[in-house]
């Protein structure tokens, strides 16, 4: 007569298992509604734009948009691996190459804003009266004033590197600090060490810890910052939600979508301009 001797303990263990399974299934249940995963950049997410436009889209279509905000480089990598249904980034060259490489099928320009050069209010390099963005960058390099670079292969970082190239400056000396961080973290760091940096206007406007930092230079055409939405090739990643992603892609450039984008304001200032 060998009955199970440890039945009460068995029951306790079973209880724990049930509890864990319950918690787990509850977390899985969260993933129930129709949704797409959007790979986008920290600058758009942190500007608060998505908070403003996504509810409008969800209300109209019933589709939830889950934003994973990373650097543009990582966003491309996510999309290439098939981990994102949709892509919204700001690196026109990169977006075009993404399609050429056979990962995407269509790219549309959704909105734009511009980059601005931020620096300490003292402006040791005297860029406030620079003639162009290139001139401003040259002055920073000549003055060897501290410059904080994203250094994370993001759209902003890529734009900054293009500016240095055009300015004929090889950055990498002591005054040039590659942070390997998102926009916000770079702003925080620059504020703490009174450094210059290149930021997108939206992130700058939404940033709350400016300390001595002020906007010093803006308005040059080369600082133009275009955001593009890319449709991912369904043949390469058949498991993705291409239908839903297509609706999002179309909605962004539709009249409703464009209006929603243009209505977004930070402190009364429009941050993204529709096409």
């Amino acid at each position: 007569m060998l009955k199970n001797p440890g039945r009460s303990r068995f029951r306790r263990t079973l209880g724990c298992l049930v509890l864990a399974a319950g918690l787990l299934s509850a977390t899985i249940a969260l993933a129930g509604k129709p949704h797409i995963t959007l790979a986008s950049t920290t600058s758009t997410e942190q500007s608060g734009l998505f908070h403003h436009i996504i509810p409008t889209f969800t209300e109209a279509t019933g589709i939830e948009v889950r934003v994973v905000a990373v650097g543009t480089g990582q966003a491309f990598a996510m999309a290439r691996a098939g981990d994102a249904d949709a892509l919204l980034v700001h690196d026109t060259t990169g977006e075009k190459r993404f399609i050429e490489d056979g990962y995407g099928i269509e790219r549309r320009e959704v909105m734009y804003n511009d980059f601005v050069i931020i620096g300490p209010s003292g402006d040791p390099a005297g860029i406030a009266d620079a003639e162009s963005a290139i001139d401003a960058m040259q002055r920073i390099a000549e003055a060897e004033a501290a410059f904080a670079s994203r250094g994370d292969d993001s759209g902003t970082h890529r734009a900054e590197l293009r500016l240095w190239q055009e300015a004929g400056v090889e950055p990498g000396s002591r005054w040039y600090r590659e942070l390997g961080s998102g926009m916000g973290a770079t702003l925080n760091t620059a504020a703490a060490m009174d450094a210059y940096l290149l930021s997108d206007r939206a992130s700058w406007l939404g940033f709350r810890n400016r300390q001595e930092l002020v906007l010093l230079f803006e308005g040059d055409e080369v600082l133009f910052n275009a955001y593009g939405s890319v449709l991912i090739d369904p043949e390469r990643h058949p498991h993705l939600k291409h239908d839903l992603a297509g609706k999002w892609h179309d909605w962004l450039v539709s009249e409703v979508g464009q209006t929603a984008i243009s209505e977004y304001r930070i402190d009364g200032e429009q941050v993204f301009l529709p096409y």
């Binding site: 007569m1 060998l2 009955k3 001797p5 440890g6 039945r7």
Partner: peptide, 12 residues
């Protein structure tokens, strides 16, 4: 101790 020796619950 009894359960270690395989004695059933009620009997134990």
């Amino acid at each position: 101790a009894l359960s270690l020796q395989g004695v059933g619950r009620a009997e134990g």
